[in-house]
Design a protein around this nucleic acid. Structure first.
Length: 748
DNA sequence: TAGGTAACGAGAGCGTAATC
DNA sequence: GATTACGCTCTCGTTACCTA
């Protein structure tokens, strides 16, 4: 087809011709597009359009369109200029196109909470934690001597202690136990036919059943029983762990627990802190250490574990985790226990100093975290009771804490990115407040609210005084140039907003605290921290971490098992609904983490301090800025400006080292980041509660995360209906019967 | 001109570093 | 310890260029 013939077609059908500079390929492409339009209605111009809900349509300039279905509705809001008829045409077109391009292979619901899983190859997460009450777990012995014959090897390992059975005898007996009709293990059958000696767990268990005095347990990588047989009188106890298409032998210490609990005891074998044969290493040299216990200056041992697997070809099992961090494991060859312990040497020297000065037992070195040292200071100053004086939250208030997070006030007052990424105005000045959290704790005059489960959200009358607790502001508030989006804030902060012009009638709800903690408790403890030497920067680390820890809302604990077998990984996925899999090169890391909400704690302390920080920042703005000042940004406790107030410049600033806690000084380090306050968006309380998020989306699979009652089942039904409407083949599947029943589907 | 490949760029995800 | 922003890296899709 030549240019001339194409131009003829265009002139005849569409009333125009192309310029000679347009290539033949481009003309063909255009023809395809126009033919497509003639057959299917108008095509969108290249670009991306937002439609209602999460539905997204993307057209490319080669005439193809791709779609993501997240919502049933498909009304366009962009681009402008489309009239109803065009919208209707596009709408119809989308429906048609979706039939052509959308493929929903299998919508697999993994459990009752509707959790679409997408397993991707990605590196292990770097994880954090320094809470390390060291625990030890048994090493699983590898007794394999012959390739592919671990069943025989394991049985012989246990039998040799009690009987004179020969290997040849055992193999003969095992061979007779192979189920040739039903056994699905074809490899095993072939092995037997070829007179090889590889046998499956099933065969082993059938063999055990023929004996009157042998008890056998086989456990999975997480230590739970896969298969077991208990003899009437046990003379031989076979216990082994299956992983990597291989069997590992369990030690005697695990057997007793295994027979009573149907699982092995992974967390109970502890040893005392302060173990003499211990070493502290960096992550680079930890594997060279010869000590029995190795503390590693790293928050997560994942990389060490991978190094161990690479060098030894053995996999430690299991690996203890906390907050999804691999914190402890035992070296499979050397038996050394590795414990993640960041800043070990710094914390140790602080504790040693403190114990020498105070003789207070809580300061005795026990691998404490900074946060624990802070708590010890509180106990040292006020008695232990203050640590136990906790808030207990109602479910409602716990939700508020989860939804309305508190962080320092960060904002870039200039829209766009011109002054970000290292490019800064040359005359920008940064003023910072030294030791912000510390000064807040020292200077606070408002009592800290302490909640009980009986404190619920109540309506607040327009003329009532605001009691101590947390209040809800139903419209955004401004403090000078700082914008605070609608949400829940401590009462003292809301009062400050009102004093600075916020409309009191917008404060509509209150969660009143039933008791309070006097400010002096923390003031005294912080003074103590300052007066007792804790090394360079020690006080700051202790106070900041301590305040952070008082904001803790969930506990996360878990286990990680590593396997090189995809079959084992999938089997475990089937077995444990809460399992996530990370693939690291050819290894599968199976993570089981359990998040437990902490319904008691001290969260209001942290939020209180953060809000005090907001007020200090507002006061700092008033102090430093006048009508000539241009505010560039805010950063928790600092402000970036051009042309600060003249008298402030004349007065000058003391260097940071000479400043007292809470004093303002000029900061050398300058940077600028954050959103413009106009871009801060708050979501009303009533709406936020009902929101759910689509975490991963794509044509083939995606994952929906949301709490109970957030509408996951509804979404699934919508999707199902949508797919049916499009004549797609779709099944609702789940791993377990209960889960399948919940969604009206079938088991896999 | 067709087919293949390198280069490029946008976007997303994740890890790191920094704040207190 | 909680939170945030930045930037690196990977992926995917498009474009530019080279060769037969």
């Amino acid at each position: 087809m030549t240019k001339a013939s194409l131009n003829k077609i265009f002139r005849d059908r569409y009333g125009f011709v192309f310029d000679s500079s347009v290539t033949l390929a481009a003309m063909k492409k255009e023809l395809t597009k126009y033919e497509h339009m003639a057959a299917n209605g108008p095509l969108l111009a290249a670009g991306e359009y937002n439609v209602s809900g999460d539905f997204k349509a993307i057209t490319t300039n080669n005439g193809y369109s791709f779609f993501k279905i997240n919502d049933k509705k498909m009304t366009f809001s962009e681009p402008t200029g489309l009239n109803d008829a065009k919208l209707k045409a596009i709408d119809d077109f989308l429906y048609k196109q979706k039939r052509n391009y959308v493929q929903v292979d299998v919508a697999a619901a993994r459990n009752a909470n509707i959790h679409f899983l997408k397993i991707e190859k990605r590196d292990l997460r770097q994880i954090k934690n320094r809470d390390a009450n060291a625990k030890e777990y048994d090493l699983f012995k590898d007794v394999s001597m012959n390739e592919g014959q671990c069943v025989v090897d394991v049985i012989m390992y246990f039998m040799q202690k009690h009987t004179n059975m020969t290997r040849a005898q055992l193999v003969e007996e095992l061979k007779s136990c192979v189920d040739r009709d039903e056994d699905s293990d074809i490899t095993e059958l072939l092995n037997v036919i070829n007179n090889d000696k590889g046998y499956s767990i099933n065969t082993m268990m059938r063999w055990v059943a023929t004996k009157s005095d042998i008890t056998a347990y086989v456990i999975d990588p997480f230590g739970n029983t896969i298969s077991y047989h208990v003899a009437k009188t046990t003379r031989v106890f076979i216990a082994c762990l299956m992983n990597n298409e291989h069997l590992y032998v369990l030690g005697d210490s695990q057997k007793k627990y295994l027979s009573s609990q149907k699982k092995i005891q992974m967390n109970e074998l502890t040893f005392k802190e302060g173990f003499e044969d211990a070493d502290f290493c960096t992550v680079q040299n930890c594997l060279n250490s010869t000590k029995k216990v190795v503390y590693v200056d790293v928050n997560c041992l994942s990389h060490v574990i991978n190094e161990v697997i690479q060098t030894t070809n053995m996999i430690p099992c299991p690996i203890l985790t906390h907050n999804n961090l691999a914190i402890k494991f035992r070296h499979p060859k050397t038996n050394q226990v590795f414990i993640a312990s960041q800043d070990y040497d710094i914390r140790k020297s602080i504790c040693d100093d403190l114990f020498a000065q105070t003789k207070y037992s809580e300061f005795k070195w026990n691998n404490q975290t900074y946060a624990q040292i802070f708590d010890s200071f509180l106990a040292y100053t006020n008695g232990k009771k203050i640590i136990e004086f906790k808030s207990y939250y109602s479910k409602e208030f716990y939700d508020i804490l989860q939804i309305y997070l508190f962080g320092g006030y960060n904002a870039c007052m200039i829209k766009g990115t011109e002054w970000k990424n290292g490019k800064l105005p040359p005359n920008m000045r940064t003023f910072d407040r030294r030791g912000c959290y510390t000064s807040c704790l020292l200077n606070n005059l408002d009592p800290y609210p302490v909640f009980s489960v009986h404190d619920h959200v109540e309506r607040l009358d327009a003329d009532a005084t605001i009691p101590i607790g947390w209040a809800y502001i139903s419209k955004d508030a401004m403090l000078g140039h700082m914008k605070f989006v609608l949400g829940w804030y401590p009462s003292f902060f809301v009062k400050y907003l009102i004093e600075n012009g916020y409309d009191r009638t917008n404060v509509t709800l209150i969660n009143k605290s039933s008791s309070v903690l006097p400010p002096k408790f923390f003031k005294k403890a912080v003074k103590n921290i300052q007066s007792i030497a804790v090394g360079t920067g020690g006080a700051k680390r202790i106070v900041n971490s301590g305040v952070g820890a008082w904001g803790k809302r969930v506990n996360k604990t878990g286990l990680t098992a590593v396997t090189d077998s995809e079959d084992v990984a999938l089997a475990m996925l089937n077995e444990y609904p809460d399992l996530t899999i990370d693939q690291y090169s050819d290894l599968f890391h199976l993570n089981r983490s359990k998040t437990t909400p902490i319904m008691s704690g001290h969260v209001p302390l942290r939020a209180h301090i953060v809000c005090m920080g907001h007020i200090l920042l507002h006061k700092m703005t008033q102090e430093i800025c006048d009508e000539n000042t241009i505010i560039l940004g805010y950063k928790t406790d600092s402000i970036q400006v051009i042309n600060p107030r003249k008298e402030w410049v004349l007065k000058g600033c003391k260097p940071k080292s000479e400043c007292a806690i809470g004093e303002i000084h000029e900061e050398e380090n300058k940077n600028l980041y954050g959103l413009h306050p106009d871009e801060f968006v708050g979501i009303p309380y009533e709406h936020k509660k009902r929101e759910f998020t689509v975490v991963e989306s794509g044509l083939k699979s995606f994952k929906v995360d949301a709490g109970a009652g957030y509408g996951k089942s509804f979404l699934l039904l919508m999707l199902y209906g949508e797919a049916k409407l499009l004549n797609l083949k779709v099944e609702k599947l789940a791993w377990t019967k209960n889960a399948a029943n919940n969604i009206g589907g079938q088991t896999l």
